[in-house]
Design a protein around this nucleic acid. Structure first.
Lengths: 238, 238
DNA sequence: TCAAAAGTGTTCGCTATACACCCATGG
DNA sequence: CCATGGGTGTATAGCGAACACTTTTGA
């Protein structure tokens, strides 16, 4: 045993597990959900795909760690990371005892992604996701569940869309996330009466002879959402 | 520095945080929610009240750790522990870097509680909770929020009641947890039409001349809940 | 004896749901 | 030209919300 090469500088009276964060990042390509994966460059699971993440530093919170690793490995900086579960199975990492604090986030369309060093990062459509490293398959299933639950209570879906979007865009997004089909007219009615959207000014220019708009765009107004939330609970159900 | 006295036997190449679990345990005394606290016997925060919990062993999951500590410190063994958040503030423990995985659970009425060794454990009414050790005040607020959210989707409230309970009992429970007031008749109607309850056989014996029952009791039927859940989502809203 | 709790049904208004037509776009 | 997608309105049924009277219990 060459102890010199593997210097163990940090000692504790009791054993400590290693702690990592992992991020499940979703985007929407207009048709379906996509998920961001990075390809592992080192053992274990070298070559396999996994969620971006890494070890917690002693001077950062888990949230900061997740943001840092995400920036390093994929150049993404989501506005809002949501911690959804901590995974602690004893054997989930073959190297040593590692627990991981998992986050999910939604990012607009397909912002730039690029590895820092040799990291390869890539978007995967939901039905093209390969077998993942470690217990990341399990983490992914939990993330999907957490996302579905969350979107019932918070209008986080808008983080996936451009500032201006059409009602069918929004509907496709919700249908992709919740894996259901809605009636167009009822979906629109519900969205409008929630009073968190605003018509785009450009709609006025696109009125045809019969008085109907074409290619109608909407905007999500966070302030309106805050106002609405104070009165009644947000509840997105169909 | 007397290194001998403080033997550091576990060494790592990179620094590792310590990992603990903490449990926020709720019970219902028929009128309001209560929370289980233990009094700390050692520094830091010696004498202060905190949630039962302790350090994660290397051969157990966080869930097992939470159950073990709970059993040791309070002699409780809840059927279902719900992990709701992991707290990672850098300075949340003055001794060293410690992150804690927090759980909440609901237990029936006032089952036995007793410390293992010198641990003092005690139920506190919601409005009589003292300042807590560490960041446990913060953890508590998060636990309450998590409980309220959870009870909208899962009929976990029944874990707090005896096998047989009256409708007013159940209503008081929900009112205590959600901090709202319901109309008796609408509450009962909603509960009944969810089709997860069953009348107690003893109700038949308690019918008076006018044909009404008195002291009517109900039971929660998990199987009915499973059946119902397959058809439509459980949604407890008023 | 009296006040508070508990058992029981009905009405109304809103909203979720189902549904049809016309126009625009692009292949 | 035709198929697909998108813009718009109405009718109905079911559920949530408001509400009153009587009996029982216990102070």
């Amino acid at each position: 045993m060459k102890e010199k090469e593997e210097q163990k500088e940090y000692s504790y009276k009791h054993p400590h597990p290693a702690v990592t964060t992992d991020c499940v990042i979703f985007c929407f390509d207009g048709k379906e959900l996509n998920v961001l994966l990075v390809q592992r460059g080192v053992e274990p699971f070298k070559g396999a795909w996994a969620f971006p993440g890494g070890f917690l530093h002693m001077d950062e919170t888990a949230n900061q760690c997740a943001l840092r690793e995400l920036k390093e490995e994929t150049n993404l900086s989501p506005e809002h990371l949501e911690q959804f579960h901590t995974f602690t199975d004893v054997d989930r990492d073959p190297r040593e005892r590692v627990i991981t604090i998992a986050y999910f986030a939604l990012v607009k369309k397909r912002e730039v992604i690029g590895g820092d060093d040799a990291t390869v990062a890539k978007w995967f459509k939901m039905n093209e996701i390969p077998r993942l490293a470690f217990d990341h398959d399990f983490i992914f299933r939990k993330a999907l569940t957490a996302l579905k639950e969350k979107i019932h209570f918070e209008p986080i879906g808008f983080e996936l869309l451009d500032e201006e979007f059409s009602m069918p865009d929004l509907q496709r997004l919700y249908e992709a996330i919740l894996d259901v089909k809605f009636d167009r007219r009822n979906f629109q009615k519900k969205m409008i009466q929630m009073d968190i959207l605003e018509e785009s000014p450009s709609n006025e220019k696109n009125v045809n002879k019969t008085g109907r708009s074409k290619n109608k765009k909407w905007r999500f107004i966070p302030q309106k959402y805050e106002d609405m939330k104070r009165q009644k609970a947000f509840r997105l159900e169909f």
